[in-house]
Write a protein that binds this DNA or RNA. Structure first.
Lengths: 339, 339
DNA sequence: GTGAAAGCGCTAACAT
DNA sequence: ATGTTAGCGCTTTCAC
């Protein structure tokens, strides 16, 4: 088993496969990447040799030679937020079985960290990028615009750089607020944690709807910069009721908060929905199983992930082939027992 | 700006930095990787040139030449299970700021898929690997044993291949079961979803404890192969009570299930803990905020992640330097209101 | 402490 | 349809 190489992890290379199959290296390469353009006969010989030697391509060599890696970057603001774990799952399921790897970057709700990650990811020459916001720093946005690979921005509709998949977050909050109004609640509050730009905008949408029907009361709006959690949801409701005890409904900026608020209400023997209505946002699985079941604006998180990766893969496979470059997946106001 | 290269993404290379700094390429490389061995003067010139040109190393070229990438593989059985999102966070926080990227592989609780992922990851020549089980296929285990990089197995203690960080899962379940017994419950049940090998072993531990004090009743043990969720937790409790209505306590194999069981109890107006005690496993944040607050065996998920990545980075930096190669992080039985 | 030469394993760009 | 040649941008090896 003579090998010319210096040290030699004796892992077989393309050249090894080529000589074993009696063809040239490039034919092996083509057999792997586009079997269609190789003759039946050569293909069989090559495949046999690959199987026999147990050959696996070296992605680093491929990336270097082709100037494009098989990495797909996915930038998310949080790893713990259930919202993104659903998106993740959609993306991973869609990448499954392709030659691409997903690499997650967590920018912890910091546009500056996001910019750094964009830089880092781009230096890997990714095949594509999925980013979870429209709120990049100017420099971050510039980097994305100049990127030599397709980019999908997810979660929202709006001013996208290349492609986008999301839904109208403001309309979704408005739907929640209107639902509360339509159910007859007249003194609605709003609680939100982690006031990132998107959360801010959603609060704005809530203000718009409540102001439009003369129900806006700033005393009923409670926010905190802390990360969202069930515990925080309880605290926020506690403070809200301390400030405005006659509040009769509360729109929660996500499910954790809503569950926390529901539990706090239980602790205080406040009847939901009779004394207080609770409307959630996102609608993770748990929401519908609470007692009472939480009404919620359901958002298509999983679908966003799978659609985003699908668009990206299509565009990587055939640049320019994706015609529907901005997809609005919509949302749904689901009324359950809590309102 | 003449460049000899063929197409030319005109991204600066090591050679560009070298000529700008008036040194050789290898000196630039050394300045980046081990600044200590480069003269003060050279180092300054190089750093200045790097900054001026905006140079970023090409990881693919580096991986190819050094036969080792800056990827750290992390194999998990699930992306949605909250248990692993905490582990993830620990790992990501620890990798933050290093030159390494974490790449997650999801094997969906399938040892066969895990084996495939081990193969795929290994073909990337990762700097290290973190794997979430001890239950590889024989071939998977062989691959890991032969891997040219450090490996950390997480979640459990036991028969590890290289290094491990976890806790004694069986002792943890036993602690939960004993807690129930000590509180005076005499007819304890057990519910579990997703019966992967680890869940099976935990059920075994529950059987051991209850059998030892004559309380084992197979009619009170309910499992399903479906993925764990709050909804499933409710169903399982429902079925358990249909089969064995006098059950006075239930050990849940994780938090989702416990929350679901708690909600099902509320729906049926069963008083927790008076008529039925509920003990949870893992203790995600939400558990302590339920009404009543859930007693739980708390497991150190986040710490497992951060410790695993720390060990891995140490070992990558200086092979053989990690002396404590098998870490038991313990667990804690936290009694709250539900028992 | 620094450098020159020689690849790492693959693919792009031409041939044929 | 297949092959030849020449790198991709870095690190290793060995010499200075």
């Amino acid at each position: 088993m003579a090998r010319k190489s210096r040290a030699g992890s004796n892992r077989p290379t393309l050249a090894d496969v080529a000589s074993a199959a009696g063809v040239s290296a490039i034919t092996v390469s083509r057999t792997i990447r586009s079997p269609g353009i190789v003759s039946e006969k050569a293909r069989r010989k090559v495949q046999e040799a690959i199987a026999r030697l147990g050959y696996t391509p070296d992605p680093a060599a491929s990336a270097l030679a082709s100037r494009s890696s098989s990495t797909i970057g996915l930038l998310v603001p949080s790893l713990t937020n259930n919202v993104f774990s659903d998106v993740l799952r959609g993306v991973y399921d869609g990448a499954q079985g392709t030659r691409f790897f997903v690499q997650i970057g967590n920018y912890r709700y910091s546009a500056l960290e996001e910019e750094g990650l964009i830089r880092t990811f781009l230096s890997q020459r990714p095949a594509g990028l999925i980013v979870s916001s429209m709120d990049q720093t100017p420099e971050g946005r510039r980097l994305l615009q100049a990127a030599p690979c397709p980019i999908v921005q997810i979660m929202e509709t709006g001013d996208a750089i290349d492609m986008s998949v999301g839904f109208d977050q403001l309309a979704a909050v408005r739907a929640g607020a209107r639902h509360l109004r339509d159910r007859g609640y007249r003194r609605p509050g709003f609680i939100s944690a982690r006031m990132d730009p998107r959360a801010q905008r959603r609060l704005g949408a809530f203000r718009d709807v409540t102001a439009a029907c003369g129900q806006l009361d700033e005393a009923r709006i409670l926010t905190t910069p802390q990360p969202s959690s069930v515990g925080i949801g309880g605290h926020l409701l506690e403070q809200l009721l301390a400030r405005a005890p006659d509040t009769d409904a509360v729109m929660c900026n996500n499910d954790d908060l809503a569950v926390g608020a529901l539990m706090e209400a239980a602790r205080r023997h406040i009847k939901v929905p009779d004394q207080l209505a609770i409307c959630s946002y996102n609608d993770i699985e748990m929401a519908r199983h609470m007692v009472p079941a939480l009404s919620a604006v359901a958002t298509p998180r999983r679908e966003i992930g799978s659609r985003a990766i699908a668009m990206l893969l299509d565009e990587i496979g055939a640049p320019g082939s994706v015609t529907e470059r901005h997809v609005d997946l919509g949302f749904e106001m689901i009324a359950r027992e809590s309102t």
